[in-house]
């Protein structure tokens, strides 16, 4: 300390002090901003006030008839308070909402809103009450997923409704579990978290985000592999196979019987 105090009047002392100060503030600032970034992505609530405002305008114009002017719900549609951004992203992003017609279940159709509008609607609904957020990119990266584990989780939690080949299946009274091929990873994720329509909810304490990523990785891998066994007939099992053999197969048999017993010209 003595040496330091002796040199404090050195001509270069001011320059050294300045440099030190700059380094310190610069470093702190960098650290602070990266923490902020991290918080923003973790919460995935990076919506601006104008997004919420624009989303509310879209909501009042397109959704309020059924869901109520303040999203409080009505006889025609449930309350959306606390549904969260993920639910909106799924329902609007896959075209299920606005609903095409009333029926046992909202059907997938071309999306009615573009990505920005969907994001704004999500922002508005997310602002009403906390709910599942749109998933982090990290959990949609199938490269990091464990396909074998995903397959096991899928067979236990999902395959009974969505079919072992993810080809979908029928439920009661006109409801059905849709096929999962061609569904975007974020929508698969959102469906698990929010449990749309009659699907049960698989929240993060039941299936952690990493396990959800494994399931998505399994589905995407399944999709890319094709069907090595020939015609899959929709992978629906005895229904489509039986229909084929009872129509085409029997027709072929009857046809060959007619041919066998007919006279040659």
């Amino acid at each position: 300390m003595k040496a330091l105090s002796q040199k404090r009047r050195h001509p270069l002392a001011a320059v050294a002090l300045l440099l030190l100060g700059l380094l310190l503030t610069g470093g702190l600032y960098a650290a602070a901003t990266s923490i902020n970034d991290a918080q923003a992505t973790n919460a995935a609530e990076a919506y601006s006030a104008s997004d919420v405002e624009e989303g509310e305008r879209l909501f009042v114009a397109n959704c309020a008839t059924c869901h109520g002017i303040n999203a409080e719900g009505s006889d025609a549609g449930p309350s959306l308070i606390g549904s969260g951004a993920a639910a909106v992203d799924f329902q609007v992003g896959t075209g299920r909402m606005p609903m095409q017609m009333s029926g046992p279940q909202a059907q997938k159709k071309p999306a009615q809103f573009n990505d920005e509008q969907t994001m704004q609607l999500s922002a508005y609904v997310a602002s009403l009450g906390s709910g599942p957020a749109v998933p982090d990119e990290e959990y949609l990266d199938v490269e990091q997923g464990n396909i074998a584990r995903g397959g096991e989780l899928f067979r236990i939690n999902c395959a009974m409704c969505h079919n072992a080949a993810a080809a979908g299946g029928a439920l009661t009274e006109g409801k059905y579990a849709p096929a999962l091929d061609g569904v975007e990873s974020r929508h698969i994720y959102a469906a698990m978290v929010t449990g749309p329509q009659n699907m049960p909810e698989f929240n993060d304490s039941n299936i952690p985000p990493e396990d959800k990523r494994d399931i998505i990785a399994f589905l995407k891998n399944n999709e890319s592999q094709g069907v090595p066994g020939g015609f899959s007939l929709g992978s629906l099992g005895p229904v489509s196979e039986g229909l084929l053999i009872w129509t085409l197969g029997l027709a072929l048999l009857i046809g060959s019987m007619v041919w066998l017993t007919s006279r040659s010209s």
Partner: peptide, 21 residues
């Protein structure tokens, strides 16, 4: 416990509408 991971299940882990095997 959960099938297949074997982790125990808290009552609070289940939200209304959840299904756990």
């Amino acid at each position: 416990v959960r099938d297949p991971t074997g982790t125990p299940i808290r009552a609070s882990d289940l939200t209304v509408g959840s299904a756990v095997h």
